[in-house]
Simulated scan of single mutants.
Amino acid sequence: MTAVTMHLGEIGQQLRAFRLESGMRADEIAARLGVSRAALYRYEKGEVIKLDTVQRLAELLNISPLTLLGVGFEYYSSPNKFFQKITQIEDDIEQILQVSDPVCYQVTSPAYDAILLEAHASHSEKELRSASAQPVILAQSKRRALYSQRKPSITSMLPENQVINFLTHGVGAGIPMSETLRHKARQVAVQEIRNIITLIDSVPMGLQFSVIPKHITTTSCIFMRRSELAAVAINPFLCDCAVENSAGVAMITSSPEAVATHQTMLESVWQASLKGQDAIECLKNLVAHHGAV
């Protein structure tokens, strides 16, 4: 019964979000669902909803009924759309456990965003000016502010190979840059890793880092929990990727089997990764050998 109630609450939140974002009146949405306005508001509060209404609501939201019920899968071939969805999820998330990126975006500095925007602004190719190729950073720019406001628990595991690549090529490795701007991007990368070293050393409440040794191969994924509701995202896109150079399909699901399997995997990787002083020494060595001077 708990699981059913949990999914009904999630359905209600998605319905309310759609109503607010669509600009449609409540009675218009109710009419499209074939229910009364009073029933619509009850659904938004997480009350029982009929299966045929679930079907119509799924069509309205342009997702599958299984996804709406929390046992399906959502797929994203665009990094912008994926990070927009992640930002939406993080709006009320309580716990994050992730192997994703050589940094934790939520605690990066404003310089991280600034160098990416500068790189995009300096690129003259016409396709980069199109709406479909807007900087990925803009799709997730609220994530840092959300973290500052809500302070969810975050455990971020940084793959050593990704940190090496990050330091070697700098922020936005896949974005064309001038030699001068690339050097600046490498300097920003060094500062971001040094910031993580400081965070590990200070042990802030609810924020943990580790380094995954390069002999361990991992899947980039994010486990997210709010109360009893959990979801997992399998993600091929880096936070600083370039739209035009990114090909892949990200997936988000609340399927209990997928969530449990990935949570177990992430917890195992955490146990095998470098933590505390060992992680600090590893990151310092990587900065010394691969960082920009």
Rank of each mutant, 00 (worst) to 15 (best):
E281K: 13
C241W: 05
T217D: 08
Q277V: 08
P135G: 10
E179H: 13
F237C: 02
E127P: 02
A145P: 02
L146K: 01
D240H: 06
H183R: 15
S273R: 07
V188R: 04
I96A: 09
S77L: 04
E244C: 06
A31F: 08
E257M: 11
D101P: 00
H289V: 12
V211A: 04
R42Q: 11
L286W: 00
D27K: 15
A247F: 11
L116H: 01
T218Y: 09
N245E: 09
P65H: 01
A288E: 12
F18D: 14
V188M: 01
E118C: 07
A139N: 04
L66K: 13
F166N: 02
N62Y: 03
S109R: 08
R150M: 00
E90F: 03
L66C: 06
S77P: 02
I193C: 07
L181D: 04
R42P: 00
R144D: 05
A288M: 13
R56V: 13
R182G: 08
I222D: 14
A189Y: 01
G174S: 07
V269T: 10
H169Y: 15
A230D: 03
A58H: 11
H169I: 04
Y112S: 00
R32N: 06
F18C: 11
E160F: 01
E179S: 12
Q149S: 04
S202R: 02
T5N: 12
D52N: 15
N161L: 15
R56T: 11
G174Y: 11
L15I: 04
D52H: 15
A173T: 05
Q277K: 14
T217Y: 09
L33S: 07
L20M: 11
I29K: 08
S220A: 12
G291R: 04
R25T: 12
C282M: 02
C104W: 08
M6L: 11
L158D: 03
K45I: 13
E179C: 06
R37Q: 13
H123Q: 04
S124E: 11
Q13M: 09
N245L: 08
A173M: 12
G206P: 02
P135A: 01
K151V: 05
G174P: 02
L128P: 07
V190I: 06
A242D: 15
I154R: 03
L51D: 15
E74V: 02
D91A: 13
P79V: 04
S132E: 12
A292Y: 02
Y41K: 06
G23S: 10
Q98W: 06
D101C: 09
